[in-house]
Design a protein around this nucleic acid. Structure first.
Lengths: 225, 225
DNA sequence: ATTCATTAAGTCATCAGATGACTTTAGGAA
DNA sequence: TTCCTAAAGTCATCTGATGACTTAATGAAT
């Protein structure tokens, strides 16, 4: 259970500090001991403490304020979450990604502006119909379109989650499934923009769901065979 | 587009090193300059270089071999995504979390089993009506109920993302907002279970959405004041 | 008593120099 | 050629010091 036999002082320091936080000995928002004290507690030099703290800061667990101190920002380890999500199956990831896009379209409909709608139409026009000779460009522009739909939701958290799943699933698909998933035609894409432009969240939801359904069906068929 | 004006030497060093890698000036597997040279190149001290390098090592981008050198391990940094999510605003996180739960209930309705429904009813019964004297237990059991709803979706990716958001938002609320968000009554909770049990995805969607709407409204009211 | 500017203490940010541990490679002996 | 040894290169870590920034205490003026 505990490999943890790293001959690496900074890494063990990271683990020790993290342990203090996960066991709630150091609460969220609380200020932790200063560098010199930490160095004494961990039995390492200040330089090593700084390296450990900076890693934890980069992971969002700690937060340093010059002149004030170092504070606990969060107890959850994003790295762990990431790994667990990575281990989930491709199908579930795609399904989640579809769900995210449906909700994004819904929000986009309630918050749409003429400028955003025009930009979406512009992007779809640039992309054009599928042309096998220009496959890479098409895939790239198509992904950009879908990201733009999500961006139109105006929800930054949703945008980031979608971005995460988008790159993640793309990597898996490239790595595992040789065949591409079916891409709905131009009319289906336009329908999404129209639904958003109509301002009707229900319509946007249904349209996007209808758009996504065949993709998941085809994936299930591929995985079954 | 790029704020990036951090007065932080180590962070700018991280960005510079990462830039060398993303632009392929330093290829994967290649050994990068030693610490002293890097210090000269970046115009910082060795200690700062070490802090930057250790962060990149913790992100899997670099790899150090004592006595040998520092090598490029990978160019991708998908890990950033979840960290960026955490830096987004509370409102957007709550909204996304609600969206996730709506989609989860929808999936749960299509895949529900009598056992799962019975378990949900059991959990809700155990939780009972709100009692101020037993606040902590109530909050805990309520959160468990909502996680169980998401778990009933059967989508492991969705479960993991929801878990990430639920702990993340909970921490923010505890840390920032003193007042708790309103929790719908027992009837509203039961309605979600009924909707899932009915097997009607539309009904589950609408019921859960109705459940979530007041929470977001109240949050907006709190943030406005 | 209250307000406000000043001062001092505490803390992180960064630097410089030095030593130890480990890896790699070159050179020499068998 | 093969094997061993020594030297050079590199990361790991420590120590000590200075600057920048924040916070709280101080004290004067109102």
């Amino acid at each position: 259970m505990q490999p943890a036999v790293r001959t690496n002082l900074a890494d063990t320091a990271i683990q020790n500090i993290r342990a203090e936080i996960t066991t709630s000995r150091w609460q969220i928002g609380e200020r932790i001991p200063n560098e010199a004290t930490l160095a004494d507690m961990l039995g390492v030099s200040r330089g090593t403490v700084r390296e450990a703290v900076r890693v934890l800061v980069s992971q969002g667990i700690l937060e340093t304020r010059q002149g004030s101190g170092t504070y606990v920002r969060s107890a959850i380890d994003a790295e762990d979450s990431l790994l667990r999500i990575r281990r989930t199956g491709l199908r579930d990831q795609v399904e989640t990604r579809c769900a995210l896009e449906v909700e994004a379209a819904r929000l986009a409909a309630t918050r749409h502006t003429p400028e955003v709608v025009a930009e979406l139409r512009q992007m779809l026009g640039d992309r054009g119909e599928y042309n096998p000779a220009d496959h890479d460009r098409y895939v790239e522009q198509d992904l950009a379109f879908h990201k733009a739909v999500v961006a139109a939701s105006g929800n930054s958290a949703l945008i980031e989650v979608y971005e995460f799943f988008s790159t993640s699933t793309q990597e898996i698909i490239k790595a595992t499934v040789t065949g591409e998933l079916p891409e709905p035609d131009m009319a289906a894409h336009s329908a999404i923009i129209d639904a958003i432009a109509s301002g009707d969240p229900e319509k946007a939801t249904l349209t996007t769901r209808a758009f996504m359904a065949p993709i998941l069906l085809e994936l299930d068929r591929l995985l079954a065979s």
